[in-house]
């Protein structure tokens, strides 16, 4: 048995679960109410709840290609996840769930609850949800393009690497010009093979 943490040190968890897309908003309310109740009953602290709306699943789950994602972020003690997941198994419309522990040792006092963070209303309309990640990641996409610019500068370091990597081709320059395109081809062949 895992030793129980003293009551002033909690663990921080994230749970994402997928609800059958055909379920009504009444059912959603019921589910979220039940889980909130479970969390508060076990003296946990619900920090954030989000409804990501209906999203396309990457693969079919329970014969559904779409699902309503709900995200919970909470603090809890040793028995919390077990109880939350047990409840989710009993709730029929929940087709998939996953809990991730974010932090082991948290002082619950240091994590105030903001009421406005807890909402089970859908954040995004159907399919707009797909863009959510993109929106969030917009800065990194900018980053990516600037990355490519940088890459030109990085070439020099690239060269060094490859110099080290291919000392055996060092016979003569002409040989190399012949040999390396071949090598390139085989490289790509390898890649496609793997795919």
């Amino acid at each position: 048995m895992a030793q129980e943490l003293p009551k002033h040190r909690a663990r921080e968890y994230e749970t994402i679960f997928i609800v059958n897309p055909e379920s009504t908003s009444d059912q959603l309310d019921q589910i979220s109410g039940r889980l909130t109740e479970v969390i508060s009953r076990l003296e946990g602290k619900l920090l954030r709840a989000e409804n990501w709306g209906k999203r396309r699943l990457a693969f079919p789950v329970a014969k559904q290609t779409k699902g309503t994602y709900i995200y919970l972020h909470y603090l809890g003690y040793a028995d919390m996840v077990h109880e939350v997941e047990r409840n989710m198994r009993m709730i029929e419309p929940v087709i998939k769930y996953m809990t991730v522990k974010i932090e082991e040792d948290v002082n619950p006092e240091a994590r105030p609850v903001h009421e406005e963070d807890i909402s089970f209303a859908p954040l995004f309309e159907e399919e707009v949800a797909e863009d959510r990640g993109a929106k969030e990641h917009a800065p990194s996409k900018v980053e990516a393009s600037s990355d490519e610019d940088q890459n030109e500068d990085e070439e020099s370091s690239d060269d060094e690497d490859e110099e080290k990597a291919s000392p055996k081709e060092d016979d003569s320059d002409e040989d190399e010009e012949k040999a390396s395109p071949k090598e390139d081809d085989s490289d790509e062949a390898e890649d496609t093979d793997k795919d």
């Binding site: 990194s140 490519e148 940088q150 890459n151 690239d158 060269d159 110099e163 081709e169 010009e177 390396s180």
Partner: peptide
């Protein structure tokens, strides 16, 4: 070799951890 590889590499691979 450096020059050659530069031509060959041609930005095909990203070598920096984003």
């Amino acid at each position: 070799i450096g020059k050659f590889d530069k031509r060959r590499g041609g930005g095909r691979r990203r070598r920096i951890c984003r």
